[in-house]
Design a protein around this nucleic acid. Structure first.
Length: 508
RNA sequence: GGUCGAUUCGUCUAACGGUUAGGACAAGAGAUUCUCAAUCUCUAAAUAGGAGUUCGAUUCUCCUAUCGACUACCA
């Protein structure tokens, strides 16, 4: 069996959205699973739509996801260059080869003429197609005398090379995900392969030539390419490369969370979740949010994306990149489009937050505390984080969840005060303060034990006392185990906060 | 319009001719707790419709419906 070599071949026309990231991910996982190579090729054959910064964005996004490029733009390799605009000299030869073998022809019809033709026919309720039926009436090397063709080319007239689609032939194709597909060529048109205007090939030619030259073994791409699969099969055949052509796998589309259609760039702003891995600053100044900037951990993001259209056949849901590489296979990829769910994305992130190490989360928390004017050590932050990490969905939640551990309450939640801060309860707090004051050190287990004994012995109202203590220590009516907090801030600070609360809260 | 593709709980999906149609997210209820989350338990929730093939169809075939992609000198 031949060496597995796959490529991710985006066009630098803007930010990569999560559908594109998923395609890259599946290619990468497939390569890793099979001990193959993952190649990054940039398909920038459309000079009109090139967007500055898009290529850098793609590379950075892959890096952030932990998708390592073995070969390609940014890392080089035996088939360099990997940017199609830098390979422009290669393609003309192949286009000409097709003309010579009778599989393609020159066409001189201007873009304006064709769009006019199209508009005319549409107004009559018909559709125009440059195909086997119409090419005999148009301006090309099939209808013009050879000398005239040569004259026009020599005169510098603009031309294009079109594929000469066979007339009535069934193309038999196999797709790894979709199975066997048959298409009759009579429904297909004569696609442009090369344009003299910018001396660049179109996608179809460049794609086939490069996949062949780069020895690509499997093409894994989005379902939107399925309709051009027959053309690609025919191109391989025309070149005489059918025996070595890659196997194809067309991935299902990612759909909008609500409504209809495939996920698009605008959906992010509309529904309030990111559609891009990284924040994207468009050249026109528009900024779109990114998963990274929204606080998603790369592992969670990748995990979520991997399961959108693929599953391992088991009930496992949490996968490291290594596990994904081990378990991924194309025959477990589903056929139907997957609706993207922001809720599930959040759930994955929360799972990754709780399993992240304390020191890692501390490194996220320290700068947040600093911006709130609180300096603390990584160790201290790690201790704080350990108490609350299963309550956080995003890194930004960490500050709110730990602020009261580093700073005495500056106000007291009114509702909680009104409910619990009553004279009889406050009296218990004074007693409790006395108990704490007696302690050598305030340690969670022993302090809790002591307080419980005291409450039980006196048949005291546990809920009221504990809630009042919580108000005094934290200023709010909810949060993690109160004794853990007391231990964290220490005996002296605990007493100080109780005193402050007794002083400043009006008894309800 | 044409061509191709898809169709299991609200959502992501499992079951590759024989299961009480399973899991997860979200929802609801309960347990737990000093509170709120988390956690645990439970509940509700699906094979688009119709014909076939078969002893038996979620699974195979056909038709219909719905959704989607494509239909550029874009990728």
């Amino acid at each position: 069996m031949r060496k597995v070599r796959v490529r991710f071949a985006p066009s630098p026309t803007g930010a990569l959205h999560i559908g594109g990231v998923r395609t890259a991910l599946y290619n990468y996982l497939f390569a890793r699973h099979n001990g193959g190579d993952f190649i990054l090729r940039i398909e920038d054959t459309d000079s009109q739509r090139f967007v500055p910064g898009a290529e850098e964005y793609i590379i950075e996004a892959l890096q952030w996801c932990g998708i390592k490029v073995d070969e390609g733009v940014g890392v080089g390799g035996p088939h360099a260059p990997y940017r199609q605009s830098e390979r422009r000299d290669i393609y003309l030869k192949y286009a000409l080869q097709l003309v010579e073998s009778g599989n393609a022809y020159y066409a001189f019809d201007s873009a304006e003429d064709l769009s006019k033709l199209r508009a005319d026919m549409e107004s009559r309720g018909e559709t125009f197609s440059y195909d086997s039926k119409s090419r005999g009436t148009l301006c090309n090397s099939l209808t013009l005398p050879a000398e005239e063709v040569k004259r026009r080319i020599d005169a510098g007239e603009q031309w294009v090379i079109r594929f000469k689609m066979p007339e009535n032939e069934n193309v038999e194709m196999d797709d790894i995900i979709r199975g066997h597909i048959t298409i009759n060529t009579s429904t297909l048109d004569d696609k442009v392969l090369y344009k003299s205007a910018d001396a660049l090939p179109t996608y179809h030619l460049a794609n086939i030539v490069d996949d062949h030259l780069m020895e690509i073994s499997h093409v894994i791409r989005g379902e939107e390419w399925l309709p051009s699969l027959p053309l690609h099969f025919l191109l391989y055949r025309a070149f005489g490369w059918s025996d070595s052509q890659p196997l194809f796998a067309h991935l299902p589309l990612l759909l909008k969370p609500q409504g209809q259609g495939k996920l698009s760039k605008r959906d992010g702003d509309k529904f309030g979740f990111p559609v891009f891995p990284l924040e994207w600053h468009a050249p026109d100044g528009e900024v779109s949010m990114g998963y990274r900037e929204s606080g998603y951990l790369p592992g969670a993001f990748v995990n979520m994306l991997a399961l959108l259209g693929w599953n391992p056949g088991t009930e496992q849901e949490i996968f490291s990149m290594e596990e994904l590489c081990q378990q991924f296979s194309l025959d477990k990829v589903s056929k139907s489009g997957a609706r993207f769910s922001p809720d599930k994305a959040k759930w994955f992130n929360a799972q990754y937050m709780r399993t992240a190490s304390d020191s890692f989360l501390a490194s996220l928390l320290v700068p947040q505390l600093a911006s709130a004017g609180i300096e603390t050590s990584l160790e201290r932050a790690a201790d704080a984080v350990a108490i609350i990490k299963e309550r956080a969905t995003f890194p930004k939640d960490l500050l709110d969840l730990t602020l009261y551990m580093f700073r005495a309450p500056q106000s007291y939640d009114e509702k909680s005060v009104a409910k619990f801060w009553k004279e009889e309860n406050v009296a218990y707090i004074r007693d409790l303060r006395g108990i704490f004051a007696e302690l050598e050190v305030l340690e969670k287990e022993s302090a809790e034990h002591l307080v419980r004994e005291w409450i039980e012995a006196g048949q005291l109202p546990m809920g009221k006392i504990m809630n009042c203590l919580r108000i005094a220590i934290m200023g709010i009516g909810q949060g993690p185990d109160i004794f853990s907090i007391c231990e964290f801030i220490g005996k002296q600070e605990t007493l100080r906060r109780i005193d402050a609360a007794l002083d400043s809260i009006q008894v309800a």
